[in-house]
């Protein structure tokens, strides 16, 4: 879809490659609700110790509501990272460090960075599986997130070069 692209504010994202190697394994929980805030939460003190292995999967409660959960693996060939964006101006201060040559520089001459357009992000954690929670029932094979995980493989197939016969 390209009709309205001009109306959308775009950004160029740079990943700090070193952070991907250093990212420590993280325990992730995907909840069937939205917490209307973005802030650190004491998961290790309040949530993890309350998880029980029940007959129909993992169980726990959040805000007095019952949840059932299961472990979902990141598809093979992919790796999971928790990414955190740096403050808008951070990457622009000091020397303009474009990833240490990871940039397989074929397509781009290193363009100068632009305020507001170039953003940097780094990994704070890595994961190869995470826990998906459903409200009162196990999310099961039809869970949205399972479908979402199938997209990268399909995308790769769609965009792969088709050999000419």
């Amino acid at each position: 879809w390209n009709a309205d692209e001009s109306a959308v504010e775009k950004q160029r994202i740079h990943v700090r490659p070193a952070t991907l190697q250093d990212a420590a394994p993280a325990a992730l929980h995907f909840l069937p609700c939205e917490v209307l805030a973005s802030r650190p939460a004491p998961v290790e003190r309040f949530f993890s110790p309350a998880i029980r292995q029940g007959a129909d999967g993992l169980q726990v409660s959040f805000r007095g509501r019952s949840m059932r959960g299961e472990e979902v693996s990141v598809p093979s060939g992919l790796a999971g990272f928790v990414m955190v964006a740096e403050e808008k101006e951070e990457g622009l201060i000091g020397k303009q460090d474009f990833g240490d040559s990871e940039n397989n520089g074929e397509e781009q001459e290193q363009e100068p960075l632009e305020r507001g357009f170039d953003r940097f992000m780094g990994a704070t954690g890595s994961f190869s599986s995470f826990t998906v929670w459903g409200l009162e029932t196990v999310p099961g094979p039809d869970a949205k997130v399972r479908g979402a995980l199938a997209w990268p493989t399909l995308a790769a197939a769609i965009h792969a070069q088709v050999p000419e016969d």
Binding site: W1, A3, D4, A7, V8, E9, K10, Q11, I13, A85, R119, M121, K144, V145, G147, A148, A150, W151
Partner: peptide, 20 residues
């Protein structure tokens, strides 16, 4: 209004991100 994404993406809760 922007055209909504294809049903394939809606059903999987996927959206394209253009900004952080």
């Amino acid at each position: 209004q922007a055209r909504p994404p294809h049903r394939y993406f809606q059903e999987r809760g996927l959206e394209s991100a253009t900004a952080l």
